[in-house]
């Protein structure tokens, strides 16, 4: 078993990959584009023959010709495979810790085994703490698979939401978050895409209550009144996001790592006769972190880690 650790580095300086396209709400484009551009950047930077400064577009054919060996820009360490190599000496933030609001959102992906969630959570938080050079984060939001807040009318969405997901599994997974909270590693917990009924059931079953419910709303801005009411009553902040829940489907991941024109050339595709690692690929979790200088509203660092298991 190999653990693939994909990373974006700081996407704030990554250019157009982070831009929302007009009309594209709820998307994983930011994740996918910034992973891809970080792979490309690492290939350029670590390739001894490269003379490009990272701005010149090249055709597909040139791309595959100049694509450097995978080993130059990635790192294998025991069973961990870092794509690309992470230079931890560059980790950290500019100012003192108390200047920042650090928000982390953890996406449990549907294909992962839910019994591994506790470990996944700890792994994700460790990576983020190391990347930002900090001891704690201010807000950790978790996104469970199978939940949505979709529909033309959010009233409907709220009702539909009630039957989605799996209450028992979600409550069971919450224990590790409470542990992180008790340790002081996380100051505040949050959930994503919980409708009013689901949220009120959840509140009765957990020890440390979420302080945030992050929901996706479309242009109409009609937050379902029951949810608004519950938020006010229980003092739970309703925050907005536009991520999709299944942020890294395995097909997308294969394409990202594969031999195609937009791929990183890490995964083997035997029919094209090219080398690379082979096996079953299971995306397990994605974590997004954002460090904002609080009283200036400036985002200094934002990025993602994505982890997948490879059965070779």
């Amino acid at each position: 078993m190999t653990r693939l650790i994909l990373s974006t580095s700081n996407v704030m300086t990554g250019g157009p990959s982070i831009m929302r396209r007009p009309g594209a709400d709820r998307s994983n484009l930011e994740l996918i584009n910034s992973l891809r551009s970080n792979f490309l950047a690492a290939q350029e930077d670590y390739s001894p023959s490269s003379t490009s400064n990272g701005s010149s577009p090249r055709s597909d054919q040139e791309e595959s010709q100049v694509r450097p060996p995978v080993s130059t820009w990635t790192t294998r360490h025991a069973s961990d495979f870092y794509i690309p190599t992470i230079d931890w000496s560059l980790a950290g933030l500019f100012e003192e810790r108390n200047q920042y609001d650090i928000t982390v959102k953890l996406f449990y992906l549907p294909a992962a085994d839910i019994r591994d969630r506790a470990q996944h959570t700890k792994d994700a938080i460790q990576l983020v703490l190391r990347q930002l050079g900090v001891q704690y984060i201010d807000l950790l939001i978790v996104s469970f698979p199978g939940l949505s807040f979709d529909g033309d009318c959010e009233w409907e969405a709220d009702k539909k939401n009630s039957a989605q997901g799996n209450d028992n599994e979600e409550v069971a997974s919450w224990a590790v978050l409470e542990e992180l909270y008790d340790q002081g590693t996380v100051k505040k917990l949050g959930v994503a895409e919980f409708g009013s009924e689901k949220l009120s059931r959840f509140l009765t079953r957990v020890k440390i209550r979420p302080k945030v419910d992050q929901v996706n709303i479309k242009d109409c801005c009609n937050v379902p009144p029951p949810l608004l009411k519950l938020g006010k009553l229980e003092n739970i902040e309703l925050l907005v996001h536009n991520d999709c829940t299944n942020i890294l489907p395995s097909g997308t991941l294969r394409e990202l790592l594969g031999q195609g024109p937009d791929g990183a050339g890490v995964l083997s595709e035997t029919k094209r006769g090219l080398d690379g690692i082979k096996g079953d690929l299971t995306p397990e979790w994605v974590v997004k972190y954002t460090a904002v200088v609080r009283d200036r509203g400036v985002i200094e660092n934002k990025g993602y880690f994505a982890v997948a298991q490879l059965k070779e």
Binding site: A41, D45, G54, S89, L90
Partner: peptide, 29 residues
């Protein structure tokens, strides 16, 4: 958008001398 700066410790980045702070990355060419 800023032009991405190469990783400081990579083959094509800045030399290894100097301080290892994130500031190096923030200074676009």
């Amino acid at each position: 958008f800023p032009i991405r700066a190469p990783r400081p410790h990579s083959a094509n980045g800045a030399s290894n001398s100097g301080t290892n702070t994130p500031h190096i990355l923030s200074r676009p060419p």
